[in-house]
Design a protein around this nucleic acid. Structure first.
Length: 576
DNA sequence: CCCTTAACTTAGCACGGATTTA
DNA sequence: TAAATCCGTGCTAAGTTAAGGG
C-alpha cells in the first residue's frame, strides 16, 4: 500500500532520530523548490454587471471594482451587516478609489452590490453545472500545478509542501468579535516574497518582469517562502506537509516530551500543591494557574494587544470577570465557575469543585479587584514557562495539554473497550475515548446545519430495520415449523437461509444504532483537532493492533500519512 | 528585565467531490 | 439520474514559545 511504500523510505531516516541528526540546530542541508503559486490576477466584471450608487449605475475603476467584488461575494453573510465590518471595509475600499470615486462614494449604505452578487452566484452555479469533461480538465490542471509546485527536495527526499499557494486578496474576517474584521487583505506580489532555499539548489524564478524581495539560505528554519501580511503585520510561511520528515520528527519529539512529563508529573503536582501555601503571592498564583492548566487543560494565555485582536484569554490572562466562586452550591463545596472566550473565541464554560486551598487562594487573588483586572496579576506565560523549564527539560504549559490528552485516551480506551464487542462497537468505544479528550480540551464545533434532519432520517432507517427484523424473525419461525413438519432437506435449507437473514439484519440494525449514538454524542464536539494534534498516534496504532481493528477505520489516508512514523513504530503493547 | 518578533503549532469552518439515497 | 448527505481537504486565523535587542 501507499503507506508501506512511504515507510520503507522513511524507516532508515527515522532510526537516525532527531536527536542525533543535527547538533548545530540546522534543519536541512539541501533545499530546492519552485516558489509559490500566486493568486490569479483580477478579472474585471463584464460591462453588463452594474454597481449602483444612490440608485445610479456607476462604472468603477478596476482597483475599486475588485475590492467591491470582495464585499459583493460576502453579501449573504451576516457579518457584512456588522458596524465594525462595514466601517473597516469602507475605509479600506476608499483607499483604492480614484479621487473622483472617492468624492462620489461617501456612504456605504447607498451602495448597491446586488447585481455583482447575483453575477457571482450565477457563476458558481455555472461551475456546478459544468460538463464532466470541463471538470476533468480543471482537475488535470490542478494536478499539474500540484506536481510542479507542490513538492520540494529536502535533503535526499522529495517532500510534499503544505500550502504552496499564496493567500488571495480579500476582506479579512477574524473569528469572534474582531476589531479588524472587514479590512482589506492586500494582494501579495513577488516583491513581497522572501524565498528560502539552499545556495547550491536551483533557485525558484519570479514571474516574468518581477523580482523577489529577497532570496536567503537559512537552514536554521524550515520554511520555504514567507511574506508579511498587512492586517496584523505578522509573517506568513509556506512550510512542508505534515507527512514530511521534518514535521514528523517534530511531532514525535512532542509526544516524547509529554511522555517524559508522565514520569515526573507526580513530583510536579506535589510541588505545586506545596506552593499553594507559599508566603509569596507570585508563587501561589503560579501554582494555582499551573493547577488549572494541569487539571482543566487550559492554554497558557499570552497577553494580547488591545484593539488588535478579539478579546480572548487563556489561563495566565484570565480576568476577575471570568470566574465565579461558590463556597457551596448544589451539594458541592468550593466550586469555581469559569466562563470566558478562549482561542478562536470559543466559549469555555465549566463549573468544577476545587481543593479548599485553591479556593481560598482564589478568594485572596480577587480581593480589591475590579472585574476587568487580571486574576493572576503577578504571573504571565513567560514566568510560568521559565518555572516549568526548571522542573523538567523542555517542559512548557502546552505539554500538559498534550500529556493529559494522550493519557486520557489511553486510560479511556482501556476502560471502554470490551474484548467481545463487534468491530463497530469497538470503534464506538474508540470514538468515545476520543470524545473524552475533545471535551477535556474544549474542542467544540457548531452543530451541523442539518443535524436534526439527519438524525431523523437515521432514526427512520432504524425503525425500518426493526420492522424488517421482526418480519425476518417471523419467517424464520415459520420455516422452522415447516421443517419440523416435513423434515426434508429443502425445508432445512430454508431454515438456514432465514437464520442467516435474521443474523444479517441484526448486524445491520446494530450498526445503525451505534451510528446514531455516535452521531448524537458528537453533536457539538469536534474530534479532529485532538486526533491530529494532541493524541500520541502510537496509542491508537497499538489499540488497533491489539483488537484487530484495521487502521483505516481510525485514520483516513491523510492521517495515515501524517502518522506514518507511528504506524511503523508502535506495537500492540505500546504504552504512552 | 521587558518588549518585540520570528517560527512554528493548533484551530474551526467553508467548500466541493465522493458516496448514498430517492 | 438527480438530489441529499457525508466527509476530507484546503484555508488561514489564532495561538505558544524562544530568542534577540535595547
Amino acid at each position: 500500500t501507499d503507506t508501506q511504500q512511504l515507510l520503507r523510505g522513511r524507516r532508515c531516516i527515522l532510526l537516525l532520530s532527531w536527536e542525533e541528526r543535527y547538533t548545530d540546530g540546522s534543519k536541512w542541508r539541501f533545499l530546492e523548490h519552485k516558489g509559490p503559486v500566486f493568486a490569479p490576477p483580477y478579472e474585471p466584471l463584464p460591462d453588463k454587471v452594474k454597481f449602483y450608487y444612490d440608485g445610479k449605475a456607476m462604472k468603477l475603476s478596476a482597483p475599486a471594482e475588485e475590492v467591491a467584488t470582495f464585499f459583493a461575494k460576502m453579501l449573504e453573510h451576516e457579518y457584512t451587516t456588522k458596524d465594525i465590518f462595514r466601517k473597516n471595509f469602507f475605509k479600506d475600499w476608499r483607499k483604492e478609489m480614484t479621487s473622483e470615486e472617492k468624492s462620489k462614494i461617501t456612504d456605504l449604505n447607498k451602495c448597491n452590490f446586488s447585481e455583482m452578487s447575483e453575477y457571482f452566484k450565477a457563476q458558481s452555479e455555472a461551475r456546478k453545472q459544468m460538463s464532466k469533461e470541463e471538470k476533468l480538465k480543471i482537475k488535470e490542471e490542478n494536478e499539474k500545478t500540484l506536481q510542479e509546485y507542490g513538492f520540494c527536495i529536502m535533503d535526499n527526499h522529495k517532500e510534499r509542501i503544505g500550502n504552496f499557494r499564496i493567500e488571495p486578496p480579500g476582506l479579512f474576517r477574524g473569528r469572534g468579535d474582531h476589531p479588524k474584521m472587514g479590512m482589506l487583505k492586500r494582494r501579495i506580489r513577488p516583491e513581497d516574497i522572501i524565498i528560502n532555499c539552499s545556495k547550491d539548489s536551483k533557485h525558484p524564478k519570479p514571474p516574468p518582469g518581477s523580482k523577489w524581495k529577497e532570496v536567503r539560505h537559512d537552514n536554521k528554519v524550515t520554511w520555504l517562502v514567507s511574506w508579511t501580511e498587512n492586517i496584523q503585520g505578522s509573517i506568513k510561511y509556506i512550510m512542508l506537509n505534515p507527512s514530511s520528515r521534518i514535521k514528523g520528527e517534530k511531532d514525535w519529539q512532542k509526544y516524547e516530551t509529554a511522555r517524559r512529563l508522565k514520569k515526573c508529573v507526580d513530583r510536579i503536582r506535589s510541588q505545586y500543591r506545596d506552593d499553594w501555601k507559599s508566603k509569596e503571592m507570585r508563587i501561589r498564583q503560579r501554582a494555582v494557574a499551573l493547577y488549572f492548566i494541569d487539571k482543566l487543560a487550559l492554554r497558557a494565555g499570552n497577553e494580547k494587544e488591545e484593539g488588535e485582536t478579539a478579546d480572548t484569554v487563556g489561563c495566565c490572562s484570565l480576568r476577575v470577570e471570568h470566574i465565579k466562586l461558590y463556597p457551596k452550591i448544589d451539594e458541592q463545596e468550593y466550586v469555581v465557575e469559569f466562563d470566558f472566550l478562549g482561542k478562536d473565541s470559543i466559549r469555555y464554560y465549566n463549573k468544577i469543585p476545587v481543593e479548599k486551598r485553591v479556593f481560598k487562594n482564589l478568594q485572596l487573588f480577587l480581593e480589591n479587584k475590579q472585574p476587568e483586572d487580571d486574576l493572576f496579576d503577578r504571573l504571565n506565560t513567560s514566568i510560568l514557562n521559565k518555572h516549568l523549564q526548571e522542573l523538567m527539560d523542555g517542559l512548557t504549559a502546552k505539554v500538559f495539554r498534550t500529556y493529559n490528552a494522550s493519557i486520557t485516551l489511553q486510560q479511556q480506551l482501556k476502560e471502554l473497550t470490551c474484548p467481545d464487542d463487534s468491530i463497530p462497537a469497538k470503534i464506538l468505544s474508540y470514538n468515545r475515548a476520543n470524545r473524552a479528550v475533545a471535551i477535556l480540551c474544549n474542542h467544540q464545533r457548531a452543530p451541523p446545519k442539518t443535524f436534526e434532519k439527519s438524525m431523523q432520517t437515521l432514526q427512520t432507517k432504524i425503525d425500518e430495520k426493526q420492522n424488517q427484523l421482526s418480519t425476518a424473525r417471523k419467517q424464520l419461525k415459520s420455516a422452522k415449523a415447516d421443517h419440523k413438519a416435513s423434515h426434508d432437506d429443502k425445508s432445512k435449507k430454508a431454515v438456514e437461509v432465514k437464520r442467516k437473514a435474521v443474523q444479517r439484519i441484526e448486524e445491520q440494525l446494530m450498526k445503525l444504532q451505534v451510528q446514531a449514538t455516535d452521531r448524537e454524542e458528537n453533536k457539538q464536539i469536534a474530534l479532529g483537532t485532538s486526533k491530529l494534534n494532541y493524541l500520541d498516534p502510537r496509542i491508537s496504532v497499538a489499540w488497533c493492533k491489539k483488537w484487530d481493528v484495521s487502521i483505516e477505520k481510525i485514520y483516513n489516508k491523510t492521517q495515515r500519512e501524517k502518522f506514518a512514523w507511528a504506524i511503523d513504530m508502535a506495537e500492540e503493547d505500546y504504552e504512552f
